[in-house]
Design a protein around this nucleic acid. Structure first.
Length: 884
RNA sequence: GCCCGGGUGGCGGAAUAGGUAGACGCAAGGGACUUAAAAUCCCUCGAGUGGUAACACUCGUGCCGGUUCGAUUCCGGCCCCGGGCACCA
């Protein structure tokens, strides 16, 4: 595609502007932040501000989601610098992970080499976008200088008893003989082998995050600068509940069946119990029944993900065993059900089909009795023929508990079972301990050794780091090369020096991303994990990243912070003070359906749209053959849909400032952003107009003998007074938008509005030049965090020697903001009927009289009775009327 | 299935604390400049009805209902779209 002529760079030489400005920043080390805060003026130390964006996985090239994330954080960092803060704004690489192994297999190279190349490419792209990073603190999590401290920390946790090993289920590919990630299981089959996936138990390491469940839940209240939705999601994820643990005796067995319920009030409605296929009772029942054995085996098929378990068809089989109801002594059948897992809780549940929808469906399917015991408070009965009644209410059919409310019954039943010694109140959490073992190569080696004589032995501190061998080839099996690399796993026991085996699993990559924010404060430190600098800088004042991390990453990082605090490494309770979650970047998709039903997607640039006379799109045509393609709607940018836009091409074509401006202007940060090439051109057009305006303004200024009048003097002319009010109200609003609201789109809209106002100023007399000078300065200042390159040059042209990126922000002039009149909206019954302009001071009676006299209002008052008059100060008068 | 969001012109969005719906930008249409094109500049632009016109009125923020003098905003019920669900990061 040829470059359109309007991008003639002599008109707005963005390429040169951006090259020169970046060279200036590099030469002056403009964004270097020193390890300890060193205020220039010791009497007034600068406040610190730590701004951080979630570091990227080095997948190859930067995508638009990255550009959005890092542009948002850069605006925040630069804005805070202009506010006079000492800003830390680092960048690094979340460099371990599954894609590197897949790419290495595909390209027959080592994951380390592939990762390093990607980091080098992506670093160059970030630099081209002009982000204000302190590159001296760059970290990559695959470097031993980083992960050695993670190994060290894990051993500390092990010694504190916060780490344990237990059996846990994974997706097992029986053909490739390997563990699969959830995303590697497609329709219940392994992505490479196509074999049905099994659930298999293997020993894995866990961190006791549940020990911190209460604190993680309660400290959410401190996070007042986090989005409410994220706090709600985390609270629900932790899922603290109050309930009752109770025992059901099992007929002809000494071992009771333990269950937990949050609804003891429904106890009289229990008609059966369900247990996991791996429950000891299930295994006993299976000894004499081939059907039960087959059923238990079938429970082991399929993926481990909760969404799949929850949506799977509910199946079960009767064990033939019976439990005894603790209150009625009734015999209740015990079933094995595929929706009960041995991993979570006790592996057994009591079932109340009348008051739990899942139990209801299971009971219907297997003709089990359904007994209603709760009714709505205002009704004498309850209808459970169509679905379960799951709300709380009043008990019936419950003997001595009849007519109690659910809450009262909870207490009475809990008391009674406690006294009998077969039940006790318990706090439960939905949150489960964090399994950190991964059966993969490209990750941090878990620093443990298994010795036949000494058991599990942590690697001694002096032997750290346990280095991950990087000179390896991935084979096609999908298995980790660490299993076959004897030089890695054959070691001597640190205790007894006998031959032993090193752990070959690596850490979940969430481990690395749980503490990197702290390591940036001591990135080059070789002797300890963290230093005093962590307390100088933490918590992170502003963290920016995708909403998809709302629970897992952000919860794990909060957990890690508390672990580090309890180890004396940091002294704060929470890692991230303020959080901004950005939306996705989406764009149009176009495709054709092949005869066999497969879709072929086309890039937006391969397609042209035809429109009707109102500009509505009619159809899309493929440029190559002129024939129609299907418009597939708007989707998240992805390789598979061919709707991704390469940031690099746009930067080359329009410049980094244009890309930054568009990405901030097109939507508020937390909403999804719809990509539009025409919108990018609009952003570019604005920067061109700004560039030209400053050039022509400079020519006009040079016609005058300096000095120009001050802006306040120039504003004595009433027309200019209005313009100056606009300048200062724009500054006031933009300051609020950039600092408090983070609505960069409205700040930019305000700047455009102000620019349009300035452009309408005709003439070149000294007063006009003075006002225009002030207006252009404010525009460049507001845009400084957004489009820093053009700003850097325009600031010099407007007469400043101090570089824009460290100039102090300005306060709006309160005198300039004063008005001398009020515009009132006049409503009849809440509907706008007229406008009225009055002096600032006006008597209420006078205002009402004038408002009634406005002709567009008066005609609606004829033949009406005035019921009342509502007034909103300085804004609105509403006459409430009724027809006569 | 469960948890959390979102839905406003042809399009992206604005309306910050219940008070003038549609700022700003894009697309589209018309015009100026030009040999021409691009670029640039100016004008129009939610829908409907009436009017030669200025203009006037009605409707309108996913759907149904409620609270209120007044609802895009608050409440109840639904529909659709998106994010997460513990081994993608």
């Amino acid at each position: 595609m040829s470059t359109p002529a309007f991008l003639d760079s002599t008109e707005y030489p963005f390429a040169q502007i951006e090259r020169d400005t970046q060279a200036y920043w590099a030469k002056h080390d403009s964004f270097r932040t020193y390890e300890h805060i060193k205020p220039k003026d010791k009497a007034k130390p600068k406040d610190k501000f730590y701004c951080l964006a979630m570091f990227p996985y080095p997948s190859g090239k930067l995508h638009m989601g990255h550009v959005r994330n890092y542009t948002l954080a850069d605006v925040i960092a630069r804005f805070q610098t202009l506010q006079g803060k000492q800003v830390l704004h680092p960048m690094g690489w979340d460099a371990f992970g599954l894609p590197a192994e897949n790419a290495a297999r595909l390209h027959h190279c080592a994951p380390a080499d592939w990762t390093k190349r990607n980091i080098d490419d992506m670093r160059g792209q970030l630099q081209r976008l002009g982000f204000s990073y302190d590159w001296s603190r760059e970290i990559a999590t695959c470097h031993p200088d980083y992960y050695r401290w993670e190994q060290w920390f894990f051993i500390q946790l092990y010694q504190k008893g916060l780490v344990y090993r237990k059996q846990s289920i994974v997706n097992w590919d029986p053909v490739d003989q390997t563990v699969l990630a959830n995303e590697q299981v497609i329709d219940g089959k392994g992505w490479r082998s196509g074999a049905p996936v099994e659930r298999r138990e293997i020993p894995q390491w866990f961190l006791k995050i549940t020990d911190y469940a209460d604190e993680l839940l309660e400290d959410l209240a401190q996070l007042t600068e986090w989005p409410e939705q994220v706090r709600t999601m985390q609270a629900n994820w932790i899922g603290r509940s109050q309930g009752l643990a109770l025992d059901f005796a099992v007929v002809e067995h000494s071992q009771a069946l333990s269950v937990y319920t949050t609804r003891p009030d429904t106890l009289m409605g229990v008609t059966y119990l369900a247990i996991a296929g791996k429950h000891p009772l299930a295994l006993i029942a299976a000894q004499h029944s081939a059907d039960i054995q087959t059923f238990i085996q079938s429970c082991d098929l399929g993926k481990v993900a909760e969404a799949d378990l929850a949506t799977a068809t509910k199946r079960g089989i009767n064990t033939g065993l019976f439990a005894v109801h603790p209150l009625t002594q009734e015999k209740l059948p015990i079933w094995i059900a595929n929706f009960v897992l041995m991993e979570y809780g006790s592996g057994a549940v009591m079932c109340v089909p009348a008051h739990d929808q899942r139990d209801w469906e299971f009971a219907k399917a297997y003709q089990l009795p359904i007994r209603a015991v709760i009714r709505p408070a205002e009704q004498s009965n309850v209808d459970i023929t169509q679905e379960a009644f799951t709300e709380k209410g009043v008990l019936f059919n419950s003997g001595e508990f009849d007519d109690l409310s659910s809450a009262q019954a909870f207490e009475r039943i809990a008391d009674q079972l406690s006294q009998q010694g077969i039940g006790q109140r318990q706090t439960h959490y939905r949150l489960r301990d964090w399994g950190v073992s991964r059966q993969r190569y490209w990750g941090t080696p878990i620093p443990m050794i298994y010795c036949q004589h000494c058991g599990t032995v942590p690697v001694p501190e002096g032997d750290l780091p346990v280095l991950l061998p990087t000179n390896i080839q991935m084979d096609d099996s999908g298995r980790s090369p660490l299993h076959t690399d004897a030089s890695f796993h054959q070691v001597n026991c640190p205790n007894c020096q006998q031959p032993a085996k090193r752990e070959t699993d690596t850490f979940d990559t969430f481990m690395e991303s749980s503490w990197y924010y702290a390591r940036f404060t001591a990135a080059r430190e070789n002797n300890t994990m963290l230093t005093q600098a962590a307390n100088d800088w933490l918590p992170v004042d502003h963290y920016v990243g995708g909403i998809e991390h709302a629970v897992l990453h952000l919860l794990y990082a909060r957990f890690f912070h508390k672990l580090m605090r309890d180890m004396g490494l940091v002294n704060s309770d929470e890692p991230f003070k303020r959080l901004l979650c950005q939306g996705m970047v989406v764009s149009d998709t176009f495709y054709r359906t092949d005869p066999d039903g497969k879709r072929t997607y086309f890039y937006p640039h391969e397609v042209t749209l035809t429109r009707d006379d109102k500009g509505r799109p009619l159809q899309a045509l493929l440029i190559a053959d002129g024939l129609p393609v299907h418009m597939g709607g708007i989707e998240k940018m992805s390789k598979s849909k061919n709707n991704g836009v390469d940031p690099q091409q746009l930067i080359d074509r329009y410049g980094a400032d244009t890309v930054r401006l568009f990405i901030l202007f097109a939507a508020p940060p937390d909403q999804s952003l719809e990509w539009s090439e025409a919108g990018v051109e609009g952003a570019h057009r604005f920067l061109k107009r700004l560039w030209r305006q400053v050039q022509s303004h400079q020519q006009q200024v040079q016609l005058h003998q300096p000095p120009l009048p001050t802006p306040a003097e120039a504003a004595s002319i009433s027309e200019l007074k209005d313009v100056r009010r606009k300048i200062h109200s724009t500054l006031q609003k933009a300051t609020d938008d950039l600092g408090r609201r983070l609505t960069f789109n409205t700040a930019i809209a305000g700047v455009m509005e102000l620019f349009n106002t300035l452009q309408k100023l005709e003439g070149s007399d000294a007063n006009i030049c003075a006002i225009r000078q002030e207006g252009l300065e404010i525009i460049v200042l507001i845009l400084a965090p957004i489009t820093p390159h053009i700003g850097h040059v325009l600031w010099q042209q407007l007469g400043y020697r101090e570089p824009l990126h460290q100039t102090p922000w300005r306060q709006a002039d309160t005198n300039a903001l004063l008005t001398d009149s009020i515009n009132w909206a006049i409503q009849i019954n809440g509907k706008l009927r007229g406008q009225l302009t009055t002096a600032l001071q006006i008597e209420e009676a006078d205002l009402i009289a004038q408002a009634k006299a406005v002709s567009s209002v008066a005609k609606f008052l004829e033949n009406q009775t005035l019921v009342k008059t509502v007034m909103v100060a300085k804004k609105l008068v509403n006459f409430v009327v009724r027809a006569n």
